[in-house]
Design a binder for these strands. Structure first.
Lengths: 190, 190, 190, 190
DNA sequence: AATGAATGAGCATTCATTCAT
DNA sequence: AATGAATGAATGCTCATTCAT
């Protein structure tokens, strides 16, 4: 196993254990053991348990942002574009249940320094903020205060993925799929 | 200080410290010290640190449910009733910022046994479920799947309180107040 | 074993182990084990290993200062008084070999914060400084710079006790006893 | 940088760090890093951290002995010769403050195997012992037991250098210079 | 009921040393 | 010779919990 493999094995194992047991209930020793490396190796790659957590948080957020932005399409019809975006985003969650669960748990937890959380959030909200702003200028989205709308988007996304992760078969059911988007879209539209 | 005062002092202190430092970063010794009791006393009132946490969680959820239900009014106009409910609920959060923050942090955290979380959730969702069901029968609310709507309600409420707790002055601004309800209502209505 | 006994047992054991193995080679676990208490107990009485060391250092220095000063006699003949003092001081070292060895090892070591060392030193040097000053006014001691004389006294005392602790039978031999004092006294006298 | 340069860089860095931070507080990694070599390189040149320390101790002691012996003069007047020796020895300490500080710290510390310490000590004490013996035969030095005198010499030298290293400007002051020698010489002379 | 000293398992982290490259 | 990633035993310290008073 090469260096990079070891580092990745540590990250993968940490993600699994943090999600299934929680940050504090997961010992660095157990991460190292399950990752197949020595305890020292974990600290060779990450300065501390907290640094490992932060790295995990930021890199997964980035992975999400990259995954979404690469699939965006802007065809002019804002509602269609939004629906596409909504499906892409939930698809990502369904394809990465562990990572999505990670966010559900740690987005509000004190295990992550709020500074790190802010930083990760901004990179994504910047992009969403821009989309909403365009929708408002086009008269398609309501003129609510932007920060409130962003928070609402985030809340609805978390709620929807929470539901679909707990009931994965519903995501294949067009009724559920359409309903979840309808609630999201109606909340924002003019 | 009587027995009951001591028990209450422990609960109050635990709430403050759990919110400001997190569950794991708060030692039982520090709770006892700040509450002005001996370490042993905490364990006379609560079998374990976890039991203290669960007690806190359930009693606050109950307090919330009682606070809301006592102020409900059903005057026949469902939208007006919903708006009143929305304001009452957010008012509660604004009046009890520590308790609301507590939910934001621990609603998804593994610090609370999922069993306890479910139990607390059901008592509130049962009530909300009934309201939604009535709205659908009256043709005012859309016929989306109920569990999805419940999750969405919860998500929107968390998002709105998150925003208003971070920006308390906005809650006095009618624009923000109306906007937050509008998003909530439009998401659910026919 | 009462509380105080436990604390004392920890101090006694720490002294023995620090002297025989050195500060860093002595684990807190080994101190606790040999003292017959739990690891936690050590940290209940001392905030850290370093705090234990400092406590040990200061209390032994104090014990030494008290032991000496209680036996001082000032009969007017400065040389006789000095000889008495010299014997009392070396007797203390011979009666407390562990504690004396402790000073030999740690008086110059970075294991003790220099601040703590200074503080302990001052309490003793203040007393010696006064004696030397009186001897100089009486014309019996040479007018060398005071700090240099203090350092020399200390150095000679450490050298003499080093020798006598390594060769305890020599301290019963009048030739050695007289010689050690002669060197000390001749160095200082007019 | 050649092999020898690297080895020397390691020794120089180790000296600096051992003196400023202590033996145990200095990691081999930090020595290697500051010396500009890889961690493994340190272990190519020295079998262990302890071996590095011993090498340092012995080579500095040798350097000191060589430096002194090369400047000895024996002109027949024992007091003049002794004064010259005293000045040469203290000059060495003032010119090599780091190395002198190293001895102050480690001469009594368990960081150095007592075997190594003895070995280094003997080479110097043999030479001093011979000088004292000659002085006694000539009737200039007092007939105290030799080992006691050697220990006293060593103690006075450590005391004097301790003072002058802490107050370097005093070494340029003839009063201090003369006083320090006077105390040393009076202690030993007939 | 209340106390707080005592407990000891458990944890994050360090660091001298090794060895494949 | 030189490198530096990897190792894992060892350490100082924490903290929920107990129990004699």
């Amino acid at each position: 196993m090469s260096r990079i493999d070891k580092k990745q094995a540590i990250l993968d194992t940490a993600l699994t254990l943090f999600v299934s047991q929680g940050f504090y209930a997961t010992s660095t020793a157990s991460i190292a053991k399950q990752a197949g490396v020595a305890t020292g190796t974990l600290f060779h790659h990450f300065a501390s348990k907290e640094a490992l957590m932060n790295h995990l948080y930021i890199s997964i957020k980035q992975e999400f942002a990259d995954g979404i932005q690469s699939q965006i399409s802007q065809k002019g019809d804002l509602e269609k574009d939004a629906q596409h975006l909504w499906q892409v985003a939930i698809n990502w969650a369904m394809a990465n249940p562990l990572k999505q669960e990670f966010f559900q748990q740690y987005s509000m937890s004190p295990s992550i320094a709020s500074q790190v959380r802010q930083q990760a959030m901004n990179s994504i909200l910047g992009f969403m903020g821009e989309l909403i702003h365009q929708g408002q200028k086009a008269g398609v989205l309501a003129d609510y205060p932007l920060p409130l709308m962003l928070e609402s988007c985030h809340g609805q996304y978390l709620a929807a993925t929470r539901y679909f992760l707990d009931n994965p078969e519903s995501w294949k059911d067009e009724t559920y799929k359409q309903s979840s988007f309808a609630m999201f879209w109606n909340a924002m539209k003019t």
